[in-house]
Amino acid sequence: MHARDQELLSSAALTAFKLNGQFLELAEHLARPAGVTATWWQVLGAVLGSPQSVSAIAREMGITRQAVQRTADVLAERGLAEYHDNPAHRRAKLVAVTPEGRAAISAINPHHAEHAAELAAVMGADQLAEAVAALRKLSEALDALDLSD
C-alpha cells in the first residue's frame, strides 16, 4: 500500500464523517418543524414508496437492524408508521407509512426544496450531481472491500 493511498482513505473517511454530521444537522433543522426527528424522517422516507422490512431499511441506510427496529416501534406508537404482514417472511413484518407519517414528510418538503436549491446555487447543479455520483461510486467501492477477518 502506498502512503498516498493511506492518506486518501483517511481523508475520505474524515470528510465523510464531517459530511454525515453536516447532513444530520441539516436533517434535524428540516425535520423539527414537522414534529419529527432526522432519524424518523430517514425511516419514513425509506418506506414512502412501498413497505419494507426492518432489515431492508437497515441495509439501505447502512445502520443496524436494531436501531431501525427501535425507530420503527416509536413511529408505530406515534401513528406515523404501522406494521403489515410480510408475505415473504412470516416473522419479519413490513414497516409502512401511515397518512399521518406521509403528512409529516410532506410538511418537510417546502424547506427541503429551499435548501436543495440553495445548495445547488452555491455549488452549481452540475457539480453537485458529479459529487453525488462520486459518493455513490465510493460507496460501491467500499461495499466491494473484503472485510473478513
Rank of each mutant, 00 (worst) to 15 (best):
Q66A: 14
Q69T: 06
R70N: 04
R70G: 05
T71W: 13
A72I: 12
D73G: 12
D73F: 08
V74W: 12
L75N: 14
L75I: 13
A76D: 05
E77F: 04
L80G: 07
A81H: 08
A81R: 14
Y83E: 04
H84C: 08
D85E: 11
N86P: 02
P87G: 13
P87T: 00
A88D: 15
A88T: 06
R90I: 07
A92Y: 07
L94Y: 10
V95Q: 14
V97Q: 09
P99G: 06
G101P: 11
R102T: 10
A103S: 11
A104Y: 04
A104N: 10
I105C: 12
I105W: 10
S106E: 14
S106T: 03
A107D: 07
I108V: 09
I108A: 01
I108R: 01
N109V: 03
P110V: 01
P110G: 04
H111C: 04
H112M: 07
H112C: 00
H112T: 08
A113K: 05
A113C: 01
H115P: 00
H115C: 02
A116M: 05
A117G: 09
L119R: 02
A120W: 02
A120F: 11
A121Y: 03
A121F: 00
V122N: 01
M123A: 05
G124P: 07
G124M: 07
G124A: 10
Q127N: 04
Q127K: 14
Q127L: 12
A129S: 06
A129N: 10
A131Y: 13
A131W: 13
A133V: 06
A133F: 04
A134E: 15
A134S: 10
K137P: 06
L138D: 10
S139E: 12
S139T: 15
S139I: 09
A141W: 09
L142V: 06
A144Y: 05
D146M: 04
L147Y: 11
